[in-house]
Write a protein that binds this DNA or RNA. Structure first.
Length: 352
DNA sequence: TAGGCCATCTGGTCCT
DNA sequence: AGGACCAGATGGCCTA
């Protein structure tokens, strides 16, 4: 198996550098191919050229006999190779109906497995999209861009950890956008340029009182020096959907506050990746993730919430709106439905 | 219409 | 032996 667990001891930079091919064009992947792989490809292509029909295990045996015949044919070639091999009759045995059916059944089964495998892969990729700094159901990142952004994100966060650089800094955004296509860069930059927006917080507080929840709000944020439209806005729902936020931080809310009654998260604990409390909002999805929807605050916004309005402490204390907002259930397309236990996250935060 | 992205099919190879 | 994984081929859809 090719899986290589990302062990505790493994440096983040190592991981990032291992993904360096993402910076290059897809075509360059071939250049990184090992000689063994090239041979494999050569064999694949060659084999494909020579045989485009059936090949089952039992058929292989039958073909071996035919190959022996072919070897005899080779003797007809002159010492200088001036004469091509004689081909007498069809190389392949004729497919009987039964063999065709067997082959077809195998193929159909294999196709279904492959489809399912690719769906699993796509689901995983989708989960990855959701923990990216900008996630939108309508503006879906392509596969390659998702991988690139993920790599950049890891890289940027590691820089934040090492150098104490702010997630609000221009450099953070630049790191995130490195090697991304222009549209994706615009998307990321637009999402990260979230200026202070007391409006949102006020609404969150106001609505907790039961006056209703604003839906469908589209909030535009100024993005000085960076391209914004059409990506420079976030729906308010992206900021308000924190339903089901669980763990010590949010569970400290008073019982008479807005309560959504979301069942506690019972999924497996996931490796925390957080540099401040807000990254608790972006825990890696659990295997059950496919049924859950949640969006992610941009790192910038998360930092903003943390430092300006939601004074999370590294010990998990919290005062104010997030608790309330987290209880909202908004009928919008993007939601926070569930999170990894934040006690795990906060325990990690304390080490930073 | 060209190019990008994607899903699917396919056959080869490797692994259990 | 059967399944997982891989990469090439192909066709559909969308957008500039």
């Amino acid at each position: 198996m090719m899986t290589r667990p990302f062990g505790k001891g493994r440096d983040v930079s190592e991981l990032v550098s291992s993904l360096s091919w993402l910076e290059e064009d897809g075509s360059s992947q071939d250049g990184d191919e090992s000689p063994e792989m090239r041979v494999r490809h050569g064999l694949n292509i060659g084999a494909r050229m020579n045989s485009c029909t059936e090949l089952g295990s039992e058929d292989m045996e039958e073909e071996e006999e035919e190959e022996e015949e072919e070897e005899d044919d080779e003797e007809d070639i002159g010492p200088n190779g001036e004469q091509g091999p004689k081909r007498r009759g069809p190389k392949k045995k004729k497919m009987t109906k039964a063999r065709q059916e067997r082959f077809r059944a195998r193929r159909v089964k294999a196709n279904a497995r492959e489809r399912s495998r690719m769906h699993g892969l796509n689901n995983a990729l989708d989960n990855l999209r959701r923990v990216m700094p900008c996630y939108s159901k309508t503006q879906k990142l392509s596969k390659i861009e998702t991988l690139r952004l993920a790599r950049n994100y890891i890289w940027a966060l590691s820089e934040v950890l090492e150098s104490g650089q702010s997630t609000e800094s221009h450099g953070f955004v630049e790191m995130l956008c490195k090697g991304l296509s222009q549209p994706t860069s615009n998307l990321v930059a637009g999402c990260l340029q979230l200026g202070p927006s007391p409006l949102i917080l006020n609404k969150m507080e106001d609505n907790c009182g039961g006056s209703g929840v604003p839906t469908g709000h589209t909030l535009s944020y100024p993005s000085p020096g960076l391209p914004s439209p059409p990506y420079g806005s976030l729906e308010a729902s992206h900021l308000l959907h924190m339903k089901g936020l669980k763990g010590p931080i949010y569970d400290q809310s008073s019982p008479n506050e807005c309560s959504g009654g979301t069942p506690p998260y019972d999924g497996p604990l996931t490796p925390p990746l957080s540099i401040n409390s807000n990254f608790a909002l972006k825990q890696e999805p659990s295997p059950h993730e496919s049924e859950r929807n949640y969006t992610v605050h941009s790192a910038h916004h998360a930092h903003y919430l943390s430092s300006h309005h939601y004074p999370f402490s590294t010990t998990g204390s919290l005062g104010g709106p997030p608790t309330q907002a987290s209880r909202y259930e908004l009928p919008l397309d993007v939601t926070f439905d569930s999170f990894a236990p934040s006690h795990l996250i906060t325990s990690q935060i304390g080490t930073i």
